[in-house]
Design a protein around this nucleic acid. Sequence first.
DNA 1: TCTGGGGTCCTAGGACCC
DNA 2: TCTGGGGTCCTAGGACCC
Length: 341
Amino acid sequence: MILHADADAFLASVEQRDDPRLRGRPMVVAHEVVACPSYEARALGIHAGMPLRQVRRRWPDVLVTGYRPEAYEAASAGLFEVFRRFTPLVEPGSIEEAFLDVAGRDRGDPAGVAAALRTAARAEVGLPVSVGVGRTKLMAKLASRRAKPDGLVVVDAELETRVRPRLRLDELWGVGPTTWGRLHAAGLHVVADLHGWSEEDLARIVTTAMARRLLSIAAGTDDATIRLPGPRQSVSASRSLPPTRTRSKIEAVLEECVGRALHRVVALEGPPRLPGRLEVVVRYDDGAHVQQRGPLPSPTLDPEVVGATATQLLEQTAYEWDGRGVTMVGVTLPLPRAEPS
DNA sequence: TCTGGGGTCCTAGGACCC
DNA sequence: TCTGGGGTCCTAGGACCC
C-alpha cells in the first residue's frame, strides 16, 4: 500500500510550534499576501493568496508572522528523517509531503504504520501530519486530502471501488484548468464518463500522455510506483516588485536574483554543477510572462559572467519598449545532469 | 480568482548524424 | 548528388504542482 503523508498548514504549524503565543489562534504567515493561514484562520475565511491588507482590515486580531525559510527547511528535514525510518521508498512531493511505499514491510497493517508515522512526526518534529492510505498514489493522495486536518483516512479496496468512478476529473492530480476545460467541453466530468473511450479518441482532446493517464485511472491501473528523487534539475530565484519600468531598479533586482540562485547552486550537495545556460523571466502587471533563454559564454558560477548574460537576456525581453509595468523578474539556472565520474 | 517563490514533466520542432 | 528513413539531442513553450 501507498501512504501519502502531508503536513497540515506547514508554514503556520512551524510558527505555532515555535511560538506558544500563536497556538490555537488565527494567524497567518504572510509577506504582503498570505502564504499560509493556520486552521484557526481558515475557519474565519482567510485563504492563501489573500492580500495582507485585507486580512488586517477585516480581522484586526489575526496575528501575522513573516517567513523563516531556515526553520521550514529544518522542519522539512526532520519530517523526511521520520519518513525514511519507516521505509526507504520515499518520494518527496514538496518540502512538506511525500509518498511512501510500505507494502511488504514487516511493520503491521498499513493503517497501523500510518498511525505510528503520525505519532512520530508529532513527537519528534512537533508537527501535525495527515496521512492517506491507498492502493495507488492517486488514492493515497485523495485520502490524505480528506484526512486533513490532523487525521488519517484509509481507502481500502471496497471503498476504492465505490469512490473511483465518481471522482471528478478536476480533482485528479495533474488535471489543471486547461485540461479540465477541454474535458468538460467534451462532456467528460467524472472518471466513469471515460468508460468506452479509446486512447486515440481521448488524445484528440488532451495530450497523449494525459489521455493514457486518464484511461489508466479509469481502469484502476494508475501509478503505484515510488520514484526516488534524482539530482536537482534547476535552481531559480525571483522577486516581485511594485510595477515599474525603471531600468536601474529592474536590473538591481535581477542581479540580486542571480546572486541568490548562484548561492543555492554552490550550496548543493555533491560535486559542483556548473550551469551552461540561463533563463530570465519577466512578469508584467497584466500577469503575462515573457521569457528569454540563452547560453552562458562557458559553464560557470562567476556572478559577473552570469549577471552580464542575465542583463543581456533581460534586454532581449524588450521590457523597456513594452507599455506594461514589470512586476516580477527572475532567473533560472538549468543544471547539467550530474555525471558519475 | 490567484499572491509569491519555488519546482517538475511533457511535447513539438529543429539540428545533426548515419 | 539526391531522396527517404531513422535515431538522438537540444531548445522553446506549456501545463501543472506545492
